[in-house]
Computed example of a mutant assay.
Amino acid sequence: MKRNKKERQVSLKETIEQKPFITDEALANMYEVSIQTIRLDRMELNIPELRERIKSVATSTWNETVKALAIDDVIGEIIDLELDQRAISIMDITADHVFTRNKIARGHHLFAQANSLAVAVINDDLALTANADIKFIRQVVEGERVIAKAKVIGMEINNRTVVEVHSHVDNEPVFTGVFEMFRSTQEKEGGK
């Protein structure tokens, strides 16, 4: 059932507060209005676009948490992080990420998202990729959102941590990788 503008805007504000990473497209479908209407509503309510909301959350939340690299060096936007445990990032595929001719994302962007997330999850001042076993499962195209989930699956001798990353578009696997990460110090007693 369609709502009037005032009711829609009140509900829209509540929805975005509960789900700050919801897209304008999803909101348009939810409220049965055009994307432009959602954008106008957001502007009237002084609610920034998704990219700015993500950046704001990522900068304020993760800037002090990520140790192994600067938050600006992470490819994609971190939306969840528990050091030496797990991390999640999202990346919207734009024209800058794709081949001009066919609008398919260049593989190095998917790898970079996964690899930088594997570095970010390490609880150390220095983490470098020592080895990676990766697999591209399907093509990703302009306009899709890639969600990468990293999980620490093991600590090994010689200051190594194994991180598994799975990337999805709409719950469909598009990339997987197992990263062997060198860290400058051994896992601390009682860690992980």
Rank of each mutant, 00 (worst) to 15 (best):
I54D: 00
H109K: 02
E7G: 01
E17S: 13
I157H: 07
V146W: 00
K13A: 14
L45H: 05
E82A: 11
T65R: 07
A68L: 11
N63R: 12
A105I: 05
V119Y: 10
T23N: 06
K5S: 10
R106I: 03
P48T: 04
A148D: 03
S56I: 01
K103Y: 08
I47F: 03
T59A: 07
Q139S: 12
V57T: 12
D84A: 13
I147Q: 08
L83C: 04
R106L: 11
D124H: 09
E77L: 08
E17T: 09
E25T: 08
F182Q: 03
D72H: 09
E49Q: 07
G190K: 11
F111D: 04
A112G: 07
V140D: 05
V152Q: 03
K6S: 12
T59L: 10
D72N: 10
E64D: 15
I157V: 09
L50W: 01
I104G: 05
E64G: 04
I16P: 04
F175W: 02
F182W: 07
G177L: 03
P173Y: 01
A127F: 12
D96H: 11
E156G: 02
G191K: 05
K19R: 09
I90E: 11
R8I: 02
G143A: 07
R160H: 12
T65E: 11
H108R: 03
Q85N: 13
E52W: 06
G190Y: 14
H97L: 05
H168Y: 15
D125C: 03
P173N: 02
V33P: 00
I71H: 09
R183V: 11
N46A: 07
S184K: 14
K149P: 00
D24Q: 05
T100E: 12
V163M: 10
I79D: 08
I88A: 01
A95C: 02
W62P: 00
D124Y: 04
F21M: 08
A130R: 11
A105Y: 02
I90Q: 13
M30R: 14
K67A: 06
I71F: 13
A118E: 12
N46D: 14
A87L: 11
E17A: 14
M1K: 07
A130F: 05
N159T: 06
I147F: 00
V10I: 15
D124W: 04
V178I: 15
N115I: 05
I16S: 03
F182N: 01
E14H: 05
Q139G: 05
M43R: 13
I35P: 00
H97E: 06
Q186E: 15
K188T: 15
M155W: 11
V121C: 09
S89Q: 01
I122V: 15
K55L: 14
T15H: 10
K192E: 11
K2C: 00
K188D: 09
N123G: 00
